[in-house]
Computed example of a mutant assay.
Amino acid sequence: MGSSFSGRTADARDRDTEGRARNARPRDGLGRPLPYGAEGVERQPEGVVRTPERSVAEAQELLAAGKPFHAHEVFEDAWKSGPEQERALWRGLAQLAVGLTHSARGNATGGARLLRRGADVVQEWAADTGRPEPYGLDLASVAGWARGLAADVEAGGPPVDAAARAPRLTS
Rank of each mutant, 00 (worst) to 15 (best):
93 L>E: 05
141 S>Y: 02
37 G>D: 04
49 V>Q: 13
22 R>M: 13
126 A>S: 08
21 A>S: 15
89 L>E: 00
31 G>K: 00
86 E>M: 12
73 E>V: 07
73 E>P: 01
29 G>Q: 06
31 G>Q: 07
140 A>C: 13
67 K>V: 09
39 E>A: 10
49 V>T: 15
134 P>L: 13
129 T>Q: 03
78 A>V: 05
67 K>L: 12
92 G>R: 05
104 A>I: 07
101 T>N: 07
43 R>L: 11
77 D>C: 03
54 R>E: 14
94 A>E: 08
73 E>F: 11
77 D>Q: 04
79 W>H: 07
48 V>F: 06
71 A>S: 04
94 A>H: 01
93 L>M: 07
36 Y>G: 13
98 V>A: 15
28 D>N: 10
119 A>S: 12
75 F>M: 11
85 Q>A: 15
50 R>T: 12
33 P>W: 12
111 G>F: 01
20 R>Q: 14
27 R>Y: 09
135 Y>T: 06
132 P>M: 09
51 T>D: 12
85 Q>T: 15
140 A>I: 13
77 D>W: 04
36 Y>N: 14
125 W>Q: 02
52 P>F: 01
92 G>F: 05
61 E>S: 14
87 R>E: 13
105 R>L: 12
37 G>W: 01
39 E>Y: 09
111 G>L: 04
132 P>C: 03
89 L>R: 03
114 L>F: 08
94 A>T: 06
94 A>N: 07
60 Q>E: 06
120 D>H: 11
108 A>I: 07
67 K>T: 14
112 A>N: 02
37 G>T: 02
80 K>S: 10
116 R>T: 09
133 E>W: 08
90 W>K: 13
62 L>V: 04
38 A>C: 10
110 G>R: 00
134 P>M: 10
133 E>F: 05
127 A>W: 14
111 G>Q: 13
37 G>I: 00
109 T>Q: 07
142 V>N: 06
125 W>D: 04
95 Q>I: 11
52 P>S: 01
66 G>A: 11
139 L>P: 01
75 F>K: 00
75 F>R: 02
87 R>C: 12
49 V>P: 08
27 R>T: 10
79 W>K: 11
123 Q>M: 13
27 R>F: 05
95 Q>K: 15
76 E>S: 06
74 V>N: 02
25 R>Q: 14
65 A>W: 00
130 G>Q: 07
110 G>Q: 02
139 L>H: 05
42 E>Q: 15
133 E>P: 01
59 A>H: 09
109 T>F: 15
114 L>T: 01
62 L>G: 02
39 E>W: 10
60 Q>P: 12
57 A>E: 12
59 A>N: 03
135 Y>W: 11
96 L>Q: 10
29 G>P: 05
87 R>P: 11
36 Y>F: 14
129 T>E: 03
71 A>W: 00
116 R>Y: 04
110 G>T: 02
121 V>G: 06
96 L>W: 02
93 L>F: 06
54 R>V: 14
116 R>D: 06
22 R>L: 10
40 G>A: 08
46 E>L: 14
59 A>C: 08
92 G>E: 03
90 W>V: 05
60 Q>N: 09
70 H>T: 11
56 V>S: 00
79 W>C: 09
104 A>F: 04
82 G>A: 05
86 E>N: 12
127 A>Y: 12
115 L>M: 01
28 D>Q: 08
134 P>G: 02
32 R>D: 02
128 D>M: 15
112 A>Y: 03
134 P>A: 03
134 P>D: 07
89 L>G: 03
